[in-house]
Design a protein around this nucleic acid. Structure first.
Lengths: 219, 219
DNA sequence: TAGATTGTTAATCGATTAACAATC
DNA sequence: TAGATTGTTAATCGATTAACAATC
């Protein structure tokens, strides 16, 4: 119903933020909120909030505002968090472990059903209640277990070969923590990247920029 | 020299990607590259690449292209990765541990000089060669050790109080992995957010959207 | 020189903001 | 009803793309 228009990327990126703030409001017992109030809390303009929400239909009511619970649930539906996409994690190193332990996949439309590594010391051990399997068993596992998405927590050099294997298995949705640019190599896949190195460098830039502005002032 | 113009956020976000690709080219012994070739590799338009690079001055040469090594180094300088900003990590849970173990802070303009947690079982143990300190000793540590930035790997509820303490200590640069919106609460701070939950939800949206388009086709 | 490719201006495209009529 | 606030159109702003003169 609300998917008929093509929603632009900037709007989509803001949706989780709306979801987060509305969830908080609901937890605090707030029943309704105006775009103006939400603007104050979130730092988006009221106009943008109204535009954004209207991409998906008229959730609000003139003179009243938006019903918090309803809007919260609707945005959850739009994001698709009521799905249960089966995901596997590739790489049980520090980062992979942290992702497996730390993320509530179930609250975000996913279920983690398998973890793979090629380190014999890790294979057979478990994270949470999930056994770490041999990467060699990837094909067998994915054939026997419907697998919708893969999470990449392996070094850059290992990605391409594994991605090829997954692609052959028909798995084309990726949450990519590696620094390998999947989308450059396949064009009918869905990728969401988490480039931690890039993020840290951007912080470095921002700090350096702020300092250099200060330097200019004193010069 | 190259900081006199105000560089727009979209350009800054692309810089680490340029840096990554140019580093690879250099590693492969490539000496020069045209915006056209870079466009093919990176997926940006050649026009955009020329515009971006020109924000910082004329690195290229007509009829020749861009010298890879020089451009790589220059973008590194622009990003500020030759700095050594002292960073502390707040929170030594799964995510904090992974960030401490996994990230090459030194290659990105930072040095990790301290880790803090309030869990007695963790205090005194170490990650890499860094001792985990009691969160209570934060003020003492930061007074004795110049601290430029803090990495937040603690649950949402714990952030505000710690952020206040850091702010009082004059620490206003944050790499924020928590779901607490720092920038809403302080306006003279620098924050780079890594919202993993948001990222996972966006992947969920993309998958759901792709599926619903398929559904529409069959309907 | 001729060919190639940048630097840079102009044109287009898209996203954000402003304004206001519709309406609860 | 009057006040408030949405839904939505129009205006502005900014980013991307196209084009081409400058120049190596």
């Amino acid at each position: 119903m609300y998917r008929n228009k093509n929603i632009s990327a900037p709007v989509i990126k803001r949706l989780p933020r709306y979801y987060r703030f509305l969830g908080e409001l609901q937890a605090n017992g707030v029943k309704r909120i105006s775009s103006r109030e939400l603007s104050d809390k979130m730092g988006f303009t009221a106009s943008q909030i109204r535009q954004d929400l209207n991409c998906f239909g008229g959730f609000g009511q003139q003179g009243y505002g938006y019903p918090v619970e309803n809007l919260y649930n609707e945005i959850g539906n739009i994001l698709g968090i009521n799905n249960t996409y089966n995901a596997i994690l590739i790489g049980a190193g520090n980062l992979g472990k942290a992702v497996a332990m730390h993320m509530s996949f179930e609250k975000r439309g996913f279920r983690l059903i398998g973890i793979f590594d090629n380190d014999p010391a890790k294979i057979g051990t478990g994270i949470r209640d999930i056994r770490i399997s041999d990467l060699d068993d990837l094909e067998e596992f994915c054939t026997n277990n419907k697998t919708d998405a893969a999470v990449f927590c392996v070094p850059k050099g290992a990605v391409q070969r594994i991605a090829d294997r997954l692609y052959k298995l028909g798995i084309k949705n990726f949450w990519n923590f590696s620094h390998y640019d999947l989308s450059v190599h396949y064009d009918d896949i869905i990728v969401e990247n988490v480039h931690l190195n890039d993020s840290l460098m951007i912080l470095c830039y921002k700090i350096s920029e702020a300092n250099s502005i200060l330097d200019d002032t004193t010069a």
